[in-house]
Simulated scan of single mutants.
Amino acid sequence: MSGPPVRILLVDDHAVLRAGLRLLLEREADVVAVGDAATAEDAVRALPRLRPDVVVMDVEMPGMGGLEGAREIRRRAPGTRILFLSMHDQARDVRRAFDAGADGYLLKSAADEELVRAIRAVAAGERYVHPALGAALAGPSADGPLVDLTDREREVLRLLALGHTNQEIAEALVVSARTVESHRAHLMTKLRVTTRAGLVRVALDAGLLEGRG
């Protein structure tokens, strides 16, 4: 390939993985690892100094985490491309990553050659998804309307559907009643319902209560 090599910032809380990725990229003439970081916060701080073309980042990390980190990178450096490298292989995890601003999503089980191929693709402005996940994303979501909910919102929805009051939910989740009310408001917005009965109907239709008490 002609032109300068693609500048890569590696972000993962495991130093051994970062070192392995750096060695992998050193074999390629058209990409170069310009730095690495153990947290999303460190990656965001390094943006002005390293000016990466592509950030290769884990989803689960201490502190800010990959999803929030992606949002912050997108805000501060909108031209930087983001490729997630993750162990999570559920369609909803991939959708959340793209909602956060990702340009690509690759499983950590991928072959070395596929990582390089994914980096080249997102650097060229393309969207890249691990082939094993493509079919799941193309079809209807198994989660239906719940796909965009966080794990905490799902739990609040389940407890609401079971008839618990805001105070009871707050005590069960060890949060304030105001926090529960905020989750409830977000649920109504995301699920496009205006009443508690509407929330219950969505939970039942999605099978959220099946096999749970």
Results as ranks from 00 to 15, higher is better:
residue 146 L to F: 04
residue 155 E to C: 05
residue 55 V to A: 06
residue 48 P to W: 07
residue 66 G to N: 10
residue 83 L to I: 11
residue 145 P to G: 08
residue 163 G to F: 07
residue 123 A to H: 04
residue 54 V to R: 01
residue 94 V to Q: 12
residue 155 E to N: 08
residue 124 A to Q: 15
residue 163 G to K: 06
residue 138 A to Y: 07
residue 164 H to T: 07
residue 84 F to N: 01
residue 133 L to F: 09
residue 112 D to C: 01
residue 153 E to N: 09
residue 138 A to S: 14
residue 160 L to Q: 02
residue 124 A to N: 12
residue 134 G to K: 14
residue 149 L to T: 01
residue 139 G to H: 14
residue 151 D to K: 11
residue 164 H to A: 15
residue 84 F to V: 00
residue 112 D to M: 02
residue 168 E to G: 15
residue 102 A to G: 13
residue 61 M to S: 13
residue 106 L to E: 00
residue 104 G to F: 05
residue 46 A to P: 07
residue 104 G to R: 08
residue 58 D to V: 02
residue 144 G to W: 04
residue 73 I to S: 03
residue 81 R to F: 03
residue 143 D to Q: 14
residue 151 D to M: 14
residue 61 M to C: 15
residue 122 V to W: 02
residue 64 M to W: 08
residue 98 F to Q: 12
residue 45 R to L: 14
residue 95 R to N: 04
residue 47 L to S: 07
residue 98 F to T: 09
residue 48 P to G: 11
residue 127 R to P: 11
residue 66 G to Q: 08
residue 106 L to D: 00
residue 168 E to R: 15
residue 152 R to T: 13
residue 49 R to P: 05
residue 72 E to D: 09
residue 76 R to I: 08
residue 118 A to T: 01
residue 65 G to S: 10
residue 99 D to E: 15
residue 148 D to E: 13
residue 55 V to H: 00
residue 69 G to N: 08
residue 58 D to F: 02
residue 113 E to G: 15
residue 69 G to V: 06
residue 100 A to M: 13
residue 136 A to C: 06
residue 78 P to M: 13
residue 82 I to C: 12
residue 55 V to E: 03
residue 64 M to D: 01
residue 110 A to E: 01
residue 146 L to S: 05
residue 163 G to M: 10
residue 64 M to R: 14
residue 109 S to M: 00
residue 159 L to R: 10
residue 54 V to L: 03
residue 157 L to R: 02
residue 124 A to P: 05
residue 157 L to A: 07
residue 53 D to M: 06
residue 46 A to Y: 02
